[in-house]
Design a protein around this nucleic acid. Structure first.
Lengths: 335, 335
DNA sequence: TACTACTCCGTAAACGTTTACATACATTTT
DNA sequence: AAAATGTATGTAAACGTTTACGGAGTAGTA
């Protein structure tokens, strides 16, 4: 059974497609009796308007494209939730895509979103992306763009980000305050600005306490737990061993936790550990994880709000917005 | 700058749209020189084919719709990953939607997917869904449907599920084997078949050991940790207290863990705990969680394979497939 | 009567793309 | 010389929908 169109309904009722369209949209100039018949038949035949036809004609799809590096990461899935809920309330669909941090995939996704003529794009840029032409193309095509969490200055778009320097500083300061001396940092990919900012904040905290970050205590990893586990193992085998680790994210902290357990290192007695993100599992770990919180759900909401405001605004050049969330220290038992 | 179309290119080169289309598709009957010009201009103007126009004309969108109850649940996000990777390899896009377990949302999502003329739909049915007309409508419209994890017999579609009875049985048998007597079960929503099957399997294991499930030791909850935490608190305050809990999912087990910690109940000494799913955080908990594993990533892959095979098959009535994954016991320290 | 006003509906164009068919010219074959 | 073949391109229809415009019919008004 092929899907019914407005034409089919028109033919069956011996009226024109225009009348059917008007009836379905509850327009004023259509006979109540005709309208009734149309609505009844549409219902009976399970008519659903073809969004491609509408998109083609109106150039509005009421769809926003969402690109995240990976979906099986609670931080991003919470952002998705916040973003989707706001979009949903305003009658927009969200198409979610994952770049898997692969540059080529990201480019292809953007191409598809352009092809699908989405009304706007929200993205958290992948860690391997160093060429931003695909993103700046959106500006040329008048497609509003919002970057959340992972933004880049070379890209024209709104930014919804964390004060990562501040978060890094807070982490460092708290570790120092707890009496630790040999502070280490497992940083994120160097391509990400947030990695650098958290590192800089962390360094600043050390500097303010007249401490220095030993080069061998600074290592980089990806956000995947498997990687960070290996990295942590290496770090914890150094002599002298660090007595505190600031992990660039809670996922990385999970890797440290695993490595510490394997090496039989007691947390927080022998090693203080602080993460970043504030995942929901944090309080359930042993020990419950001290961390720097990011308001992921709220970031998602805010991203949607800014993007939708831009989309619905008729102004030629809508002003670029930057929204910076303040990270907060969440004290539990791992420090 | 509006987006360029094939018409614009045709006008600028003083040729017809047909020629442009042929050039872009690398057809045989087009002058190499013309082709070169077209490709160059298309590149220069950032031409991207309008997928709505193509979808409208060809009735094929190379898109599959994916509906999950919630995305911030590692089980589902791993399924998404498996599914998306397979789809991606075969040149299909995946549009991801969440129903939030809200029936009305699920219906609306299906309507949208029909409107978007997706080539196929994969869904894990929401826990509040009891009317399946929206799903069976897909059959009438010749849109292939695959249900994963949460399927229903009244719906016409492929099934990619777990042997939940077997999983429940294995959980019960293992708890009994470890010497526990007062077994309790925190079950999932009664609307879900998987809840009932896990429960039945669990009961069967008890029966085979001449044990009975005391009515007050059987409680229901949702899959949200907050709910299960409350439920677990109540359960653990009963007298006599259960000495073993089979949680319908790892998320629920996290709630139990939290409740047990709050009531200062030692696991596994005073309480054995077994979950279901095998989340990635399981080994990192204290104690590491014993659980029944579901092969989420593989389930996602299999769902995509079956669905795509159906889509690409030209057969009028492609035979319905059922794929049952065997759950396995993952022994850690919580029992 | 002749006008206006209103109600209801149809016509047709447009969105961007693909493709069957037709056409025009050039080249080869008989 | 005429016919056949080949090459490169154009024409036009189709997909499903919305909407500006116009027209027909009816009813009310001057």
């Amino acid at each position: 059974m092929p899907q019914v169109s407005i034409k089919d309904i028109a033919r069956m009722l011996n009226i024109s497609v225009a009348t059917v369209s008007r009836a379905l949209h509850d327009r004023y100039d259509v006979n109540p009796e005709t309208k009734r018949k149309v609505l009844e038949l549409a219902e009976k035949l399970n008519y659903r308007p073809n969004s491609h036809a509408i998109g083609l004609l109106t150039k509005r799809t009421h769809t926003i494209g969402l690109v995240v590096p990976e979906i099986d990461n609670q931080f991003f899935s919470e952002i998705i939730n916040g973003l989707e809920n706001v979009a949903y309330e305003q009658g927009y669909n969200v198409m979610i895509f994952q770049s898997q941090n692969i540059y080529e995939r990201e480019v292809k996704i953007i191409d598809q979103l352009i092809g699908a003529r989405v009304d706007g794009v929200a993205i958290s840029i992948g860690s391997s992306t160093e060429d931003f032409r695909h993103l700046n193309m959106l500006k040329e095509l008048d497609i509003p763009l919002a970057m959340f969490d992972r933004a880049h200055d070379k890209v024209y778009g709104h930014k919804i980000i964390n004060d990562n320097f501040d978060g890094g500083y807070k982490a460092g300061a708290f570790l120092i305050k707890s009496g630790r001396q040999r502070l280490a940092h497992i940083a994120g990919p160097a391509t990400l600005k947030l990695s650098l900012l958290r590192l800089q904040g962390f360094k600043a905290a050390l500097r303010d306490a007249q401490l220095e970050l030993r080069p061998e205590y600074l290592v980089h990893t990806t956000f995947r737990m498997e990687d960070s586990y290996q990295t942590a193992l290496n770090l914890l085998r150094l002599l002298p061993r660090p007595d505190a680790i600031f992990a660039v994210s809670d996922y990385v902290a999970l890797g440290v936790l695993k490595a510490a357990r394997e090496l039989d290192i007691k947390i927080p007695q022998e090693l203080a550990l602080i993460g970043f993100t504030n995942l929901a599992v944090g309080p359930l770990l042993e020990p419950p994880l001290t961390t720097i919180s990011q308001q992921s759900y709220e970031m998602g909401q805010e991203t949607a709000r800014i993007l939708l405001e831009n989309i619905e605004s008729s102004e030629e050049d809508f002003k670029l917005q930057t929204r910076i969330f303040k990270p907060e220290l969440v004290i539990r038992d791992s420090v």
